[in-house]
Design a protein around this nucleic acid. Sequence first.
DNA 1: AACGACAGAACGATCGCTCGGTAAAAATGC
DNA 2: GCATTTTTACCGAGCGATCGTTCTGTCGTT
Lengths: 213, 213
Amino acid sequence: MRKVRTFSSDIDLVKERRSHIVKTAVELIVKKGYNHTSTRELAAALGMSTGGLYHYIGSKDDILYLIINFTSDLTQSLLDNCTKCNNGSITQHFTECIRLYLTGVEQYRDLHNFINHVMLSLSVNDRRIVYENESRIVAYLEKVLTEGVKKGEFRAHDCKCLAHNVVAIANAWANRGWYLKRYYTIDSYIKEQTGALLTLLTGASDPVHVTAR
Amino acid sequence: MRKVRTFSSDIDLVKERRSHIVKTAVELIVKKGYNHTSTRELAAALGMSTGGLYHYIGSKDDILYLIINFTSDLTQSLLDNCTKCNNGSITQHFTECIRLYLTGVEQYRDLHNFINHVMLSLSVNDRRIVYENESRIVAYLEKVLTEGVKKGEFRAHDCKCLAHNVVAIANAWANRGWYLKRYYTIDSYIKEQTGALLTLLTGASDPVHVTAR
DNA sequence: AACGACAGAACGATCGCTCGGTAAAAATGC
DNA sequence: GCATTTTTACCGAGCGATCGTTCTGTCGTT
């Protein structure tokens, strides 16, 4: 957890301002790209001056770090929510995990696009944080799938690959939304993908529709 | 097809130099990001001066356009190759399309990462070119799948979604290669994904391994 | 009077890009 | 075929703009 410089000693104020900075920066950067978003513009969008902005951050790159850290928090709360709903069959649990994951992506679509965009601008350390976030999600899904196979509820040839595919499908909703939104809502997308996955996992002879929720 | 300014009238030389520029620029930008790659650096990497570089391009953004155009050519040749191998069963054709697509992604992984990275830096028009490339691939795959369903070879609930998933899986190989390369080679990845897709499509009760060439 | 949040002018660095110059090659004249 | 002019690929110093960042000053609160 790297330190980000601030000239304020009011912890709550720093947290509030930085939260505002993260939110506004993501919006701007997704719209105009990182390099075309100047600190002046960002400050203006925040209703501050550049000096005021630098009261709460140490450098422009710190903003990236703050955003990355914010996504780490989101990942953590996603995994927490997934754990919480583990009280029915594994099929139900898996279905709910996918629903939680994908609705989360939909809710923070800008953020996911942002991550993709700035990935190559990140320092090696910051990049690792992003990697670890995704890895944790894959690992969780893989665990659920493996458990399902062990209990005979699922049949799968490669749980790791399927877990990865869920992440790929989720990323696609963010990256390729311009295309998908012509044909699907997030709900119909979830329904379709869940159906396909469960067909594969349970070997139903006909594609089934599982009520996602 | 936008025009890119040049001060040379030697068409072949322009083509050669620009090809060199595209290749070198992708390498540099993937390594350092677009904004951190200056025209000076690029010129140095090309063994030229900035003045010499601007002999063949009109602006830095033109480089992006040239790269985007290069990927359009790649997409076209991919689709051509797919069409060429349509001489067996639809299953064989579909399998071969996936193999061609994914090996192409592997071959130009830098380029695919690049596209993802600069997407938000692109002008609206250039963005559309990228979108159309992906759309054409999805459309082709969807056509193959629909044909397979019509002929009774495949069973699928939503061909469009499955076609999109292939693209998502291919993009994932480029974007998430840092993770996948720990566990798969491109060949084993193709094998695994093809197997899963065909299991879903043909409804085999056990995951089958299709020899992907 | 002291402090902290913020403003905004100013600085140094770097950027994309231009432009006058050069040396070699091609075209031209005789 | 040689000399001269024109063209062309390329160089690199330099321009103007903009960037990230700093720093001094202001104003309201304590």
